[in-house]
Each structure stands twice: as C-alpha cells, then as structure tokens.
Amino acid sequence: MINQQQAAAPVLAVSQLNVQYGAFQAVKDVSFEVHAGEIFGLLGPNGAGKTSTLSAIEGLLHPASGSITVAGFDIREQPLHARANMGVQLQATSFQPELTISEIIRLFASIYGVNLKDAAVKQKLAEINLEEASGKKISQLSGGQQQRVSLVISTIHNPQLVLLDEPTTGLDPQSRRQLWERMEHFRNNGHAVLLTTHSMEEAEAVCDRIAIIDHGRIIAIDTPEALIAQHRDDPAVLSVVRKGKVTLEDVFIGLTGTAVRS
C-alpha cells in the first residue's frame, strides 16, 4: 500500500546527475523528481542521454556524481531495496532465449519475490492476449509481442516506480493504446511512471509532465500544455510550425534544433 506520507515524498528523486563514458559526458547535472500518481516523460533526440539517465537510476552504471533515490532508498547505498521498488523495461528486450515465456515470467516473479501459480501466469498472459504463447520461446514472438511480455514482467511485483525505455516503439496502434491505458491505470492506482519516447503525440496524450533533454542537459521541464504555452511565440518554434497550429513537436524541434543527430 502507498500511504499518505510516501505519496508526499517523490517516488524517484534524481539530483545533479552526471554520467561519464570515458572522456565523454553523456548526462550533465540532470535533476528531476517523479511523484506517485504521475506519468513523467523524458524526451530528447537520439543520443540525448535518456537511456543513460535510466541506466543510472537502474543501477546499471555508476554515475560520476549526483544522487538518486527510489522510494526513499539510495540506489548506491541500498541498491537491492531500491531495485525491488522499481519495475524496468529496457530499451532492448533481453530474456534468456532458451526459456519459454511462462518460464521467464515465473523466473522474474520469483526474483521479485512474487509467488505465481500456473493459473496466475496464464492470467498474466491473458492480460496481454498471449495465452497461446506460454510455451513459446521469446524469439518466436514478434517484436511487439516481446514488448508486451517485457511490460508484464516490469510490473509483476506492483512496483512504486515503473521505468519504461521507449515502450511503444514498434507497437501497432492498438497495442500502443492498450499500453497507454495500462500506464494510466497504474498512475491512477498511485504508482509513478517514467518513460522515454520519441513520439510527441504520446507525450501529449499520456504524460502529466515532461522533461526535454538535449546533449545530456535538461532544457525544459513542465506539463505539455505549459511548454506549448511558454514557447508558442519563440521565433525558433514559429519557424517550424506547420499548418498554423503550434504542437509539442514544434516546441521540441524549436528547442533542440532541426539538425539530425549522429
């Protein structure tokens, strides 16, 4: 249960985060918070540092500096507690190719301390319309189906924080809508969701707040509506507007420039 006190403190707090790969600094002084009952979107061009930020939160890499707490647990000091409170969908799906889908679900349930009976595994698969896939290997599923398995696993322990790295890339419109609904359902039950996306439509449709990150730095952070309102008269934004109406995408391109990233 999420009580009042926890609801007041942020579920995820990232402060002054710096991530370094050798001499290259991928994330620079990034700070933000995600609260219970909130869907937070991290937007940015390719190579902006979204996955690197998530990796630091997940504890996959050691940041050069900065602090991160998940559900009150410092990710460096109490990593197992912090990770027990988050569900993760990595950008690249990566499960043991030798195991069947139901074996994978059962494995991760146990890792997160959830005891799933056969019927419960079936139920989970039914939720994502993959009942027939239970005996299949992960490589026998389509990309979108793999994403759905990955999503089920990321929420199997009902975590306070869900981290989704480009969860809707490669999904068909139906599955995408279904995913949005699941995220909203999650938010409405008091969980916090952090997702990255390249889709401005998605950011506008589901995110309560978004941060735009470019070259490792957060350059704007607010609700989608407020960002549009703030920047609707910027010359850089106006110059990329199509058909007269300022969209989040126009603001995004206005702020991050038109150059395609390497």
């Binding site: 990770r83 027990a84 990595l90």
Partner: peptide, 12 residues
Amino acid sequence: RGVFQRLRVGPV
C-alpha cells in the same frame, strides 16, 4: 544478448 542487464535491474 543483454540477459545479464535484465537480471541486474532486478533485486539480485
């Protein structure tokens, strides 16, 4: 394949 990364983001 990233199998380890997926395990490592869990509480193990």
